[in-house]
Design a protein around this nucleic acid. Sequence first.
DNA 1: TATTGCTAGATTGTCGACAATCTGCTTGTC
DNA 2: GACAAGCAGATTGTCGACAATCTAGCAATA
Lengths: 229, 229
Amino acid sequence: MAKLDFRPIADTTRRAEIVALLRRAILTGQLEPGQKLNELRISEQMRVSRAPLREAMRELVQEGILTSIPYAGTFVIDVTAKDIIDAYSFNKVLDEFAIELAWPQRDPRFFDELDRRHGAVKQATRAVDTTRQIETALQLHGLIYEWADNSVLLETWQRLTNRLQMYFALHQRARNEPVPAEDVHETYVALLKGADMRAAQRHAREHIDLDFEELLSYARGLEKRASKN
Amino acid sequence: MAKLDFRPIADTTRRAEIVALLRRAILTGQLEPGQKLNELRISEQMRVSRAPLREAMRELVQEGILTSIPYAGTFVIDVTAKDIIDAYSFNKVLDEFAIELAWPQRDPRFFDELDRRHGAVKQATRAVDTTRQIETALQLHGLIYEWADNSVLLETWQRLTNRLQMYFALHQRARNEPVPAEDVHETYVALLKGADMRAAQRHAREHIDLDFEELLSYARGLEKRASKN
DNA sequence: TATTGCTAGATTGTCGACAATCTGCTTGTC
DNA sequence: GACAAGCAGATTGTCGACAATCTAGCAATA
């Protein structure tokens, strides 16, 4: 028999679809930080009962992008400057570890996938689709985690990615102008193809620091607005 | 007015209590890896309807100690040797980072708390309460994470802790004899009080490696049993 | 005026029942 | 006997209604 491995078919529960819808709405910034999610209203809009909606919301609470206060409501998490700082300094450590683990695992499939994802970023950049640009950049970045072959690390990064995507999206929306068209990932990709692991780790840190500065200025703006209330 | 800060009152939803009950049952090994959770049976035992139970289970799925297959059921996660290896190598990196962040934050309250938690471990050891021994040891270990002042790091460690507690509990149950009575944390505590951060980081690695060996032998046993099916 | 107690409306938490899906067994066919 | 079809029971997913709780506003009181 010809070898052909099928992937598991899609989960066809309402709950799973609701999770995807809500997550997307939050990560793209359609639902703003601190905003309350009214169960009745959302369930009516989605033509769904409150039970699967509530279960979906519990999942997203544990995923770290919603927060729930009993009998008061469920809210999109607030974003503070410190949250962003914490996420980024943590991401540095994770990146270093991921590169270390993934390094000896690099194979032809890795390099192919690297180019493919890099291409996706460039395409989104050309199309000036900022949301997709963020998504694809994070997917490119996630490759080393997938190749690191450490389930806990991968899981942790996926959680972190959610937050990062949200932060970037908020930042983009706030400054209201397209992202730089130049390709900031060229060096990163080249280093991952090279032979110097330390150099790749070093660049990952610096590369991150770049966007970090921009995000921080956005976060500081948030802080100011919050202190006015 | 005298300054007196109250803590938020306890969540008093059924859901929260169910989460606590189930989590405890899983982490202590009362619910075994791979075991299926029958919603109707559990809800009857707890005298609760299935709605809050299901919501609680969704939370635990996202917490990483349950796994859910649509229309098939929700199960306690399986434990493989690789899971344990992954968790431990990840824990090493996290520990190193946590010590680095917590180091300059050490203050009198830190040292007090360090002694208090160390005392709790010793007490549980004397009482030969293995479950509590695991709990307190992890709490002792968690101190550096609480002092690191990085929300993402802390959150990640709390997730990891769940797994570690489960692994240790399974290991204890399997070998069916009390844990060594000697105090393996003495050096760790002393180093955290000292002035040499690198030494503390180094010891954290080695200290972990000790218990790791034991856990691994247990995990390998699991692997064998699994391959027989 | 400031504070307390109360009420009405809205919202979340929980329940019991029904619908959709899976699993194992039985039946029928070759 | 091997195998597919189909049925019955059990279990999960979803629904609509009710109970518990919160919030805002108003009245009462000092």
